[in-house]
């Protein structure tokens, strides 16, 4: 199972890097969205997700070694919320750029002159 998800994460990272390097701002944005999801999956997989019991301890007889560590889920939740905020800001910024320049081509960025 770990191997399968590792391959998926690798593919997502590759796709994200490819999208971020595109010239179009919209594709660039999709790249960042994929990247944040790839990292969430990475934390999830690295944290170990498939050990057995749910992390609710009713009695002390349960074997602590088979319960799943709940902390990665908490980290991912935080990361999702932060990613959501950052991506919303990016959408606003990119649309502002588009409304000023009527283009979404990053190559059209003007480099201010060395004056």
């Amino acid at each position: 199972m770990e191997l399968f998800w590792s391959l998926i994460i690798g593919l997502l990272f590759a796709g994200a890097v490819y999208s971020i390097l595109r010239r179009s701002l919209a594709k660039n944005l999709f790249g960042f969205i994929i990247l944040s999801n790839a990292i969430n999956l990475l934390i999830f997989t690295a944290g170990g997700y498939n050990r057995g019991a749910a992390p609710f301890i009713k009695d002390s007889s349960i074997d602590f070694n088979i319960i799943t560590d709940p902390l990665p889920q908490a980290l991912i939740l935080t990361a999702i919320v932060i990613g959501f905020g950052v991506i919303s800001f990016c959408i606003a910024l990119y649309s502002l750029f588009y409304s000023q320049n009527r283009t979404d081509d990053i190559d059209k960025l003007i480099n201010e002159e060395v004056a």
Binding site: I20, N28, F32, L35, S36, I39, L42, I43, T45, A46, G47, G48, L71, P72, L75, A79, V86, F89, C90, L93, Y94, F97, L109
Partner: peptide, 23 residues
């Protein structure tokens, strides 16, 4: 735009390092 993009990449790398370290 430049500032935001480069910093998003930086945060992404920090978070992946963090996830691997915790794992």
């Amino acid at each position: 735009l430049k500032y935001v993009m480069i910093n998003l990449v930086s945060s992404a790398l920090f978070l992946s390092g963090l996830g691997l370290l915790y794992g």
